[in-house]
Design a protein around this nucleic acid. Sequence first.
RNA 1: UCCUCAGUAGCUCAAUGGCAGAGCAUCCGGCUGUUAACCGGAGGGUUGUAGGUUCGAGUCCUACCUGAGGAGCCA
Length: 440
Amino acid sequence: MYPLTTISEIGRHESKDVRLEGWLYNLRESGKLLFPIFRDGSGVIQGVVAKNAVRPEVFETIKNLTQESSVKIEGRVRADKRAPGGYELDVSGVEVLHRVAESDPFPISLKEHGVDFLMEHRHLWVRSPRQAAILRVRAQIIKAARDFFDERGFTLTDPPILTPAACEGTTTLFPVDYFDEQAYLTQSGQLYIEATAMSLGKVYSFGPTFRAEKSKTRRHLTEFWMVEPELAFATLDDIMNLAEGLIAFIVARCLEHRRADLTTIGRDLSALEQITPPFPRITYDQAVKMLEDGHARGVLETKFVWGGDLGSPDETYLSTQFTKPVMIHRYPAQVKAFYMEPDPVRSELALCVDMLAPEGYGEIIGGSQRVASYELLQQRIKEHGLPEEAFKWYLDLRKYGSVPHGGFGMGIERVVGWICGLEHVRETIPFPRTLHRLYP
RNA sequence: UCCUCAGUAGCUCAAUGGCAGAGCAUCCGGCUGUUAACCGGAGGGUUGUAGGUUCGAGUCCUACCUGAGGAGCCA
């Protein structure tokens, strides 16, 4: 029996006979020549079957194969300049594991499809080369983020997914019946990793997050994944340096390990190659000036007034003004979460930062230095109308050796969407959950 | 919750208020280098649902259903 290999490794077997296990991606034929294209999860390769070069049953079997039928293939690897991957396979043998019935063909053809149809068939759509490439980039981004923190002395601490109350009290949560008690799916692990940061110093969490907001945009999922680092003895500058380092590290890793996939997806690599530190940092005040300028030039419809949060068109505008991710820091405290530390110089500002990805992708990171004072935090909880009882444990963290600390959250799907250059985050996760989609 | 748009063959889309069509997919035939292959042929329809206007509705009107894009909110 010939050695088993994968399509991505097939170059090592040039001029040798090998076996492959995979699926038929497409079949072209030209009289007595067949061009079956196989995929095996690692890549795609074209086979060549000449009628006068193989046993009749091999030719007939491949001629009658249907799209996505599963097969074991034998053949000789041949370098060919015409092949996109550099190699072709001169097929000598085939074993059909499962032949797709022509009465019920694979629904996703090589032609164009609509969003609704593709989402309804997401379980099959993930087989397409482009979607597989995106999922490989996603995996690389996650690995890079974890390596980044692991290599810098952070400890992974997983916060609970079932929580008793809102973390921030702003967004809508998914309620869950917890043995006749009201529980919610977590919207952030931050409050919990503030606790573990006081134990381990530098921690991070990586897990799913749930928001029941009725958002219908290219940037929103109801279930998404976040990486959240939290550092004891950290200031806003430390947070911004860490965020900058993380994003630069992730982009470099993708360019190093997933270049072929990014090319498959059609990403402009030169835009990613510019993503090196330092990233521009501007204050909220400076951002407001830029927005006023944008309005004066007629690019932005509505005039921005100091004191409000940045709207979606505002963020898009700002992010198109830079070729690197831009960090906007020190927003008015009134539009930000209750746990953010006020700026000691101007107490009406919060020590917070949002990082906006370039090319109009918008917010990918949101972070802040946290309130360290027990009295101030208690006051903020009251001001925001939050139930103090639910935050008793959180207040405890300021009672026993409180220190300046902070962290940020990075939305995995938005980073994947930006790095891959996608139109919508629904393609960045194997099975997206959106406002109107719970299937498959 | 609000605004905008869409729903016709398995898929992607056409069709001035006047016979419901094309490409792809499937099936049959042709082609020894095809690249979303190409060429010839065949089958395939309750035009999202309900009502209304009209001699006549895929097309116009009303309501509803489903989905998409955006706002707000957020990562």
